[in-house]
Design a protein around this nucleic acid. Structure first.
Lengths: 264, 264
DNA sequence: CAGTGGTCTAGACCACATG
DNA sequence: ATGTGGTCTAGACCACTGG
């Protein structure tokens, strides 16, 4: 049934079950200072941070964990819920609960692209292009990019990965007219810089960056492997040429506790 | 008992009870697409945003609201919980649930102080000094301010208010040596600028600002009138003189959905 | 003291994803 | 068909706050 041995079909699960037995070995004090669900939260969090639970590993089922801790499932779920909102765990309905990447804080710079100062670790970062298409500009986008409403814009949606794990989600919009060969130039290395360079734009910088907080929409959550409605940090930036012409409008979405944004 | 009339002792409550009756008038579909707690969340949120529930108003008790909606209290609490994490509501144990200020987004600038560009609305903003004292510098603070570990620093804790409601919480540290008369100069208008000016420091600017996400500690929550553990946005900044001397290290804490930080 | 929000239990049914 | 996470109920006791 729900015993540790029965789950040995999955590699991760065998390990996780042993882990669970250890973690739940010491019971909770009946009338403790700290709420039970917070004590469970503490133990799980420590397990994740110490890599006892590896990135990507699946946890045993909620019923099983709750039974192991000898608490109600709702009590356990409070602990899981908080770990999700902090970006440690991610739950998929009908599938299971999984450990996200190690939430080491990652510092980005503001002026040039967010990856301008990673100092040789560039090969740890990859990008996955989710969509690239052209469509008419909405009023808001048109205003920011300085084009007419309804003019053609290029919309690029990507996920940036670090060590293979989603780091942040971004939607970029470019004016269509100045970049007729954007798609072809971008395709080679999935590089916006390349697409700019192919059209003679070699210099550019962030004109303004706005940081806000919010909660992940379902599409963002899916792209980042997050539970929907998880708190996130949003960036909104415009990129301009030295002459002051806007060539990019960028919307970023970062798991809340995953990043430090540095502005000099 | 729990009827609307019985609560008429409080001005807010009478109004809120009438509101509750109206809000709960239409029942929920049994097998709806959207979860019941999310439907309750929607209605409450709309009530707050439309000012039907004024800032500072106390909601009826959770038992009463749950009864009015004809749902279990736990279901209602899921709705309240989300509204708390979004900064709309604030709960105090043993007291009640209260409506926070209108969560209009507030834009701040980065370079000079956060209030440099409020454009004549300055009288809407006030500051409450929570503590002002001198103590030895920790290693971290000493490093940032360029003083020796254990050297005396000035620690200033404040809450910035907008229209009388807490907007953000800040802890500022200054080197003690260069500002012997800080307290006296600050006292007049609760102004750091005054304290600087009294010591001949007229020009200064933010050297670096770091933005991170996190969850409100209990002291921050208390200062901001937030529920503890609510997601927040944190700023960490250093202020330097034109000669590059660090004269301030500042830690800010903002309700997540309450602010836009603009960096030019 | 009475009322508040915070926690916890022992069930139950559901939608979903997978084999 | 099975197991998963998501939702919901009807209770209960607690700690805290205020009059």
């Amino acid at each position: 049934m729900g015993t540790a041995g029965a789950a040995s079909a999955r590699g991760d699960r065998t390990e996780a079950d042993g882990w669970l037995a250890t973690l739940a070995a010491t019971r909770f004090a009946a009338r403790s200072e700290r709420a039970i669900w917070l004590q469970i939260y503490d133990r799980l969090k420590r397990s994740i941070e110490s890599q006892e639970l590896a990135s990507g590993a699946q946890l045993p089922g909620e019923h099983q964990i709750a039974a192991a801790f000898d608490v109600n499932r709702l009590t356990l779920r409070r602990a899981l819920s908080r770990l999700q909102s902090e970006g440690y765990l991610s739950a998929r309905k009908g599938v299971g609960v999984f450990v996200r990447q190690t939430p080491t804080q990652y510092t980005v710079a503001s002026n040039q692209g967010f990856l301008a100062n990673v100092d040789g670790d560039l090969d740890r970062f990859a990008v996955r292009t989710l969509s690239l298409s052209r469509s008419p500009a909405s009023a808001e986008i048109a205003g920011v990019l300085g084009v007419g409403e309804g003019d053609e814009i290029i919309r690029l949606e990507r996920v940036r990965l670090r060590d293979g794990h989603p780091l942040y989600h971004t939607v970029k919009c470019f004016p269509g007219r100045p970049f007729p060969g954007f798609e072809a130039a971008y395709a080679g290395r999935s590089s916006v810089s390349d697409a700019f360079a192919a059209h003679g734009v070699g210099q550019y910088e962030r004109a303004q960056t706005v940081v806000t907080g919010g909660f992940a929409r379902s599409d963002e959550a899916a792209a980042l492997g997050l539970t929907p409605k998880t708190p996130v940090l949003r960036t909104r930036a415009t990129v301009v040429t030295p002459e002051g012409r806007a060539i990019e409008f960028s919307l970023g979405c970062w798991p809340l506790t995953m990043v430090e944004l540095v502005f000099d």
